[in-house]
Amino acid sequence: MQGKNKSPHNNSPNSLSRREFLKGVGTTAVAAAASQAEQLAAQIKEVSDEKVHGPEAVPVTLHVNGEKRKLVLEPRVTLLEAIREHLNLTGQKEVCDRGTCGACTVMVDGVPQYSCMKLAVDSQNEDITTVEGLSSNGQLNKVQQAFIECDSLMCGYCTPGFVVNLTALLDHNPKPSEADVREACSGNLCRCGTYPRIFDAALKAAGVKTKSRVQILSAKDIINA
């Protein structure tokens, strides 16, 4: 389903991600394939552009869910606002707007980040994946499917953030322990209190068995008590 360093959830062979690009710059060990050399040069030019932009709206190109999207935004527009309000991808939510709740979590080159604490203008040349980019042709991914089966959502407002975050976890760690899942979720808040079932869903999606922590006692049991 995916290459190792590439975001698995979209398909943008032409955009060399910033992460890979920097890797190329940073370490001589990375031998950029000859065919990529030209591309690399172009990228260097693009990100090295020391031009001053704004404060008025400027052209911004985002790569979201495998699509190139051109927008005109003030530099102070966050990635979250660009995605939600300008691209109308409203899956990711604005909840705290301060990088404390995780509802806005997107994958940036496959890595979960808070889109509320990132400028859109600062997110060009990166592969952005939102929850809308996780299911293809109406086919839910494993995490989404497990969320439904385990009832890992209630009001559902935190759900897209958790789903994106846990999808990224399983991409990097296909057989996580419950401790891994808890740690991965520590930057996402849920107010309805679905955490135990979010843990269950992540483990279920990874094919790890979990035990039910719930019993139902019938009236008979109660009378006999």
Binding site: C96, R98, L189, Y195, R213, V214, Q215, I216, A219, I222
Partner: peptide, 25 residues
């Protein structure tokens, strides 16, 4: 904010066991 108004998070979760006393009647 959620920085200093602290909501319980994933790592704060205890084991939770639920016993529902069903009385359908």
């Amino acid at each position: 904010n959620f920085e200093n108004y602290k909501l319980p998070g994933a790592q704060d979760m205890p084991e939770i066991e639920i016993i529902l006393m069903e009385m359908p009647e």
